[in-house]
Design a protein around this nucleic acid. Structure first.
Lengths: 188, 188
DNA sequence: CGTCTATTTGAATGTACTCAAAAGCGGTGG
DNA sequence: CCACCGCTTTTGAGTACATTCAAATAGACG
């Protein structure tokens, strides 16, 4: 439970409550935390490993929307709050461990602890701003700029993820990412 | 104040309170509701006209993030909640009228009316989901698909906005939008 | 009617994609 | 220990989608 400290500042009582209610779960590589069509029932706090959230388009291609590593949250916020089926998949990229906070427990915490309320509201807002920036970046920059920005923002992920995962996140093909990495020297 | 009914379901008492606190303001075409660097202090409910929210990139180009017409809200949600300077502009595209709800009044309503709380939380979440879908669309579809989707989703806006505004929203040049509109027949 | 802005069209160019094949790399089993 | 399998990355050639810049045309408004 120590990992949560990195994210939430909790009193001993709050922490005890949280420990009682959250459930630890392990995921193998490729295992799903959420599949398209399901309603997202949990916020998952990643204590070990890495998850990717992605959408599969009509052509069957995967598009990574975000990654969640240690001390970050994974959830389909839209589906969670609206209680409508998700259009997204959340899948373990590595063997991982998460703390699952079920909706009913979230409501419990929301109503009992002000700090909890605020923490999660801020998280949604931050996510919102990130998304907005990413959209603008997608519109206004080249693949190369996006990749260099990715490396700058997530140096750890650059080593940790495959070419294909990163390419999907920045919206290009793995082949083209390979060329970018090799200095675009060998451009066709 | 009648316009608000379209969006919020309010009791007579709530409506009265809202009327007392919200301030009506008119904007000329090209006038700014918010400029880059300012902290967003208001949620603006558009009762007449249309606003565009956009970001100016390093190259000086404008990128429309969203439009807000009658019965919709305009605000930089990120800046409003974080109280940090905005990176966005919100500008009247037409002569417009809005109801301004200042942050302090929002807090008043949040604490006094449950429905208000919920309404705005849902709005942020809906905005979030829309953004997510737009990002995916931007990555996975062609300019032509995006334009046709835009027309389908906002048939009114297609007539109401200039080529350049729509092009900026779907992330292409006005010239290319013109070609799309004319059936791509006269492709270079 | 003239001026200003928005739209259309053309030609050349750039960015990124597709498809295909070759090379690299990590693990597993003989 | 190395040979082979499966997967990822690299490289090449051809192509598609969209851009830039420039010029021509069309609309809107005083």
């Amino acid at each position: 439970m120590d990992h949560l400290d990195a994210f939430l500042t909790l009193s001993p009582i709050e922490k005890e409550e949280l420990t009682k209610r959250a459930s630890l779960k392990k995921y193998k590589r490729r295992q799903f935390l959420l599949s398209e069509g399901e309603v997202c029932q949990n916020y998952a706090f990643v204590s070990k490993g890495c998850f990717k959230t992605y959408k599969v388009d009509e052509a069957g291609k995967e598009h990574n929307i975000m990654f969640a590593v240690e001390n970050q949250w994974a959830a389909d916020i839209g589906s969670f709050h609206s209680e409508k089926p998700s259009a997204l998949y959340i899948e373990a990229v590595e063997p991982s461990e998460v703390l699952l906070l079920h909706k009913k427990d979230m409501i419990y915490f929301y109503t009992h602890f002000y700090s909890f309320n605020r923490t999660f509201r801020v998280m949604v807002e931050d996510n919102f701003v990130d998304l907005q920036n990413r959209l603008i970046q997608m519109i206004s920059t080249t693949a190369e700029e996006r990749y260099f920005d990715f490396v700058k923002r997530f140096p750890d992920l650059d080593n940790r993820l495959s070419n294909a995962q990163i390419a999907s996140y920045i919206g290009i093909t793995p082949e083209f990412l390979s060329r970018i990495r090799n200095g675009l020297a060998n451009r066709p």
